[in-house]
Every structure is written in structure tokens, then in C-alpha cells.
Simulated scan of single mutants.
Amino acid sequence: MRRTVRRAGIVGTLALTAFFALAGPAAAHVEVEADTAQALAENVTLTFVSEAESTTAGFTQVRVVLPEGIAPGDVTLEEAPKGWKFKATADGYTVGGPEIATGTDGEHKIKVRQLPDARELAFKAVETYGDGKISRWIELPTGGAEPEEPAPVLKLKAAAAGATPVSPSPTASEPAAPTPSATEPASPAAASQAAADEKDEGSSTGLIVGGAVAALLALGGGAWWWLSRRRATSGAG
């Protein structure tokens, strides 16, 4: 009887081991939690945990692609491994720095200005190890099938009564310098230069006109002298 019970226990243990081994690839290796997992909640702290899988190197960086409704400017870093820095990207952010100890889970926390009005949020994550290995947890469920490298998903409760979206956050980039308009008034220095150029141009024009008039007078006087002399010569003959 004891031998039968013992065999049954061994079989059960092996069955559970096989079950978890088969279910392992579908388990999330990057997890996300929120202190307030509710749509339209404001100033929410999200905690990301990257499970260490490498036995030869530690994490050096985690890149997160933010879901629709959360802009990079709406996110700030709250906590990360020592020496790690936060940097916003076009579609999310990266947090990284010195390699952490091998076998140590990478954990960081961010604060989000406001969660969007959604039922769940998927945060695609890419992990980088010190030896160059990269793990991509970016797949989303399709057709009911569980992906092998699933992105971490945060499920949200319905928004609280009266909750509304806040205004978009201001951009962090500096605005480009405006292009000068054709009707825009010139600066004092430019105005003075323009006046000087106009004066010089007027003076040059005056000299040209004056010279032309003098030349015409000289030609006229020469012609009058030539005609007068010709008449006198004809009279004398």
C-alpha cells in the first residue's frame, strides 16, 4: 500500500513538472504592476520587473515602448538600479547603466501623468545584457493563442465616475526659430544700413544725371559756336 502511494506521488510530481515546463515559455518574463490600475487614474506609479534569465551576464538596459495614450513626456523615472539613467525616446523610453549582478532581476519604477481610458495596456519591452544578449518581450496575443515572448500587459479597472482626460503635456523640445516674415519690421541696424544704401544710391544717381546734363550743355554750346562761325564765313564770302 505504501509503495503504491509513493508511486502515485512520484507520478504526480513528474506530471506537475512537465506541466510547468510546457507552460514556461508562455509566462511573462517582464512584469508590470501599478499602484492604481484604473483607467484615467493620475500620477500612477508603474513597476517593471525584468526576470534575469542569463547565467553569464546581468542587465544593462531596458527599453519600453509605451502604449497608445501615454506620451514619453508624460513619464518620469522614480526608481532604477544604481547608476542607471532615464532617457525618453520617440515611442517610449530607455533606462540603463552599469551592468547589474548576474542573476539579479532588473526592477525600475516610473510615474505616469495619467493612464488612458482603456481596459488593458501592453508595454513592449526589450532587455539588453552585458554580454550583448537581447531579449524581446514584444508579442501580443493573436487569435487566442498565447505568444512565446509576450509583452507585459496591465489590466485596468473602469474609470472612476467623473474622471476626464487631462490636457496633453507640453513638449520637452525647444521650438524652432520662426522664419522671418516679409512684412516683419527690420532691426534698427538693418534699417540704418538700408537708409545708408538708399542715400548712396541717390547720390550716385544725382552724379550721373548731373554729368549727363553737363555733357548735353557742352554739346549744345559747341553746336551753337560751330553754326555761328559757319554763318559768319558764308557772309564774308
Rank of each mutant, 00 (worst) to 15 (best):
T45H: 01
Q61C: 12
A52I: 12
R229M: 09
A37I: 01
A218G: 13
Q38T: 08
V65N: 12
V30K: 06
I134N: 10
G130P: 06
G143N: 09
G97S: 14
V95A: 12
W226N: 11
A151P: 01
G103Y: 06
R229V: 08
G73T: 06
M1D: 10
L219R: 13
W137Q: 08
A218N: 11
P72G: 09
E146F: 04
V30I: 07
V209D: 08
T179K: 13
F19Q: 14
L121N: 02
E53S: 15
V209F: 04
E184Y: 02
K157P: 00
G103N: 08
D35K: 05
A158M: 04
E68L: 07
V75D: 12
E53K: 10
A28S: 15
A161M: 02
P185N: 03
A214W: 07
V153N: 07
P67T: 08
K124H: 02
R136F: 09
L121G: 03
E31K: 14
V62K: 05
A90C: 00
G206C: 08
V126C: 02
E53D: 13
G69F: 09
L115Q: 02
L216T: 10
P188R: 10
F86Y: 08
K199H: 04
P180I: 06
Q114L: 04
S187C: 00
G143F: 07
T128F: 08
A88N: 06
A8V: 05
T128V: 06
F123I: 03
A118Q: 11
V62G: 08
A122N: 03
D197P: 02
V95R: 10
S54Y: 03
L156Q: 11
V95K: 00
S50W: 02
I208N: 07
A88M: 09
E79F: 08
A159E: 02
A163Y: 11
S228K: 10
P175R: 01
E146S: 11
A21Q: 12
T36F: 00
A122S: 09
P180Q: 10
K109Q: 14
S204D: 15
T45M: 07
R2T: 13
D74K: 04
Q61D: 03
K87T: 15
L140T: 10
K199E: 11
A21C: 04
P25H: 14
A186L: 14
